[in-house]
Structure formats: structure tokens, C-alpha cells
């Protein structure tokens, strides 16, 4: 479930990136790298787990699924927080800078 959640996040981010690249300065590519990297790594984890559990791997208990989904959502949220932090620090459109030096 964590793998699925991250893969969907990666796909959505890639579509958003493709729609706006190369003009966009929102740095959605950071999200794409993070989610795709994590998806590949969790895919390997899933393959090893499948080799160990066989068919049982595809029939997790509802509690396990819910916990994994909760973890997946938390991972997506962490990715968004990292992206937002980088975006605000790099401030490609100068919005933060303009707000800080605003007179009133």
C-alpha cells in the first residue's frame, strides 16, 4: 500500500511537471525525483517480501493495509514539506523576498 501510494504520487507529480515544464519555476521535478526514487526502492522491498511470503503478500489484513496506507500518506506529506521548504528557500519567483522587504 505504501508502494502504491508513492507510485500514484509520483505519476501525478510527473503529469503536473510535464504539463508545465520547462517554463515552470515551481520545481515539481524535486517531487518527481523523490517519489520515483522511493517507489523504485519500495518495489525492491516488495519483491523481496513477495519472495518470502509468496501469495500471502497480496492478501494483507485490513489493519496492515490501513497502517501501510497511513505510512504512504505520511511519506507523501513529508515529500511535500521537503519540496515546499526547498521552494521557499530558493524562492525562484522572488515572492518571499518581496514579502520580506515590503514596506507596510
Amino acid at each position: 500500500m505504501t508502494l502504491l501510494t508513492t507510485v500514484f504520487a509520483a505519476i501525478i507529480c510527473t503529469i503536473i511537471w510535464y504539463k508545465n515544464a520547462p517554463k515552470s519555476e515551481m520545481r515539481v521535478d524535486i517531487l518527481c525525483w523523490m517519489y520515483w526514487g522511493a517507489s523504485i526502492m519500495w518495489l525492491v522491498d516488495a519483491i523481496f517480501e513477495y519472495a518470502e511470503l509468496q501469495a500471502e503478500y497480496f492478501t494483507p489484513s485490513p489493519v496492515e493495509m490501513l497502517n501501510d496506507f497511513y505510512l504512504g500518506l505520511s511519506v507523501v506529506a513529508l515529500g511535500l514539506v521537503i519540496w515546499l521548504t526547498i521552494l521557499l528557500i530558493k524562492d525562484p519567483n522572488g515572492v518571499v523576498k518581496a514579502s520580506l522587504f515590503k514596506n507596510n
Binding site: 508513492t6 523523490m34 517519489y35 522511493a38 511519506v75
Partner: peptide, 12 residues
């Protein structure tokens, strides 16, 4: 980028 991004989320 792929390695750092994936590793950070995996560490979490």
C-alpha cells in the same frame, strides 16, 4: 536526485 529522494523517504 533519485538516490537522495528515495533514501530520505525510506529513512522516514
Amino acid at each position: 536526485n533519485l538516490l537522495w529522494g528515495g533514501s530520505v523517504l525510506l529513512a522516514f
